[in-house]
Design a binder for these strands. Structure first.
Lengths: 213, 213
DNA sequence: CCGCACGCTGAGCGCCTGCTCAGCGTGCGG
DNA sequence: CCGCACGCTGAGCAGGCGCTCAGCGTGCGG
């Protein structure tokens, strides 16, 4: 199959993703980082525990000292990733200032995170369905929270007369959808996460009818 | 795992997708439809040949009379799906009339297809990386064609003074990204594909700075 | 200097996967 | 009415999967 060549280039070209610095012990962190890379490249079901352990420089059995199952590894990644992205979105949305600035800030931050941590984000956004029943339900809950944050922001801006939208709920979903899809197509080079974030903030303002003219 | 319950509900609630009517013989078509449903629900790697054959009401061995491998089944789906969506997009983009109407028409048609055939679209858009090397390269080519269609349309509208965009290439990518992501979140109910298409056409016009005020 | 606790490995179990093949049934040309 | 051709099945193979476990090495408290 073709993944090896395609994904290998991307992995070595991409960043090692520094967002797992706090995880200890060292071996557990190395396994987590290896799993993020492997899941992002091949997907959860196409990744073997031998592959994860190999990338972390360990034997397959070592994985089970730190995590009970392969699915638990995915759950950890999803959990931490969602926590982080929801928190970034909420903090930006609840900042002081006019709604158009809050929306621009929220989109810029959210998009920048999806570009900078695109390997993690890809796992978080697209491997969700491989989670077990209970873990899936929990993660969907977090996901709904970020939808609510965006929905409330757009609705508040509309009520305040800053935004001109017919359907705040659908508009909010579309803005979020646009941001999330960054994780699917982004790869380093061409433009920086910061630039894409700024560009998307402008697009979001246009979508809610609040673009500076 | 949780897929069975989640996906089962969706499969039986959703449409059986009529876009494969032309495929014959009958058994080959049933297998194709079964594969689309299974891949959309669980993903390519989590789907077994026994599952596909079972859904089509046949024994596992029957699959290999009509298709050489499981991957070839995915290739057929991707090929036909991409052909169809690229053609829909091109025809709408190359219609007569002002660019703003062409863009609106293209987005409406493209989004409607992604919603109506969301099972097929999900496979087409998100299972791509499971293809073999050569098939992957071919499909990526089709994909680039749809990117070019949208890019040319946005650039032409900008040059004609109908659109106000800073970066036509990035704007076109964002519009396409927004449309494609419909396949990820759409499920029947709430709003019809037609309604979502019309709403997204309006969003696209706003994104290129050509919204009616 | 001993011995225990802990992180880790090599070997491997049981299961399930994609895929194969000899043979069976059915329907159609002669 | 025969016989061949073709679509399909039941049984099953080789290999790879997630996961386990007895035992090895190393470093630290006593």
């Amino acid at each position: 199959m073709a993944q090896a060549a395609r994904a290998g280039a991307q992995a070595r070209g991409g960043s090692p993703d520094d967002s797992w610095g706090g995880v200890s012990p060292d071996a557990a962190r190395r396994l987590l980082v290896a799993a993020v890379e492997a899941f992002a490249e091949r997907g959860f079901h196409a990744t073997t525990t031998r592959d994860i352990a190999g990338r972390a420089g360990m034997s397959p059995a070592a994985l089970y000292i730190h995590y009970r199952t392969k699915e638990e590894l995915l759950y950890h990644i999803s959990r931490v990733g969602h926590d982080r992205s929801v928190r970034l979105l909420s903090e930006a949305a609840e900042a002081a200032g006019p709604y158009r600035e809050r929306l621009a800030g929220a989109v810029r931050t959210f998009v920048r995170w999806h570009a900078e941590h695109h390997t993690t984000a890809r796992v978080v956004q697209y491997e969700l369905s491989a989670l077990g029943e209970e873990h899936y339900a929990e993660i969907v809950g977090l996901r709904r929270r970020s939808e609510k944050v965006m929905r409330d922001l757009v609705a508040a801006g509309a009520e305040a007369g800053e935004f001109a939208v017919d359907d705040p709920r659908a508009t909010a979903l579309a803005v979020l959808s646009l941001c999330i899809d960054v994780a699917r197509w982004y790869s380093p080079g061409r433009r920086t996460p910061e630039e894409i974030g700024a560009f998307y903030a402008d697009l979001a303002l246009r979508m809610v009818g609040a673009a500076p003219r």
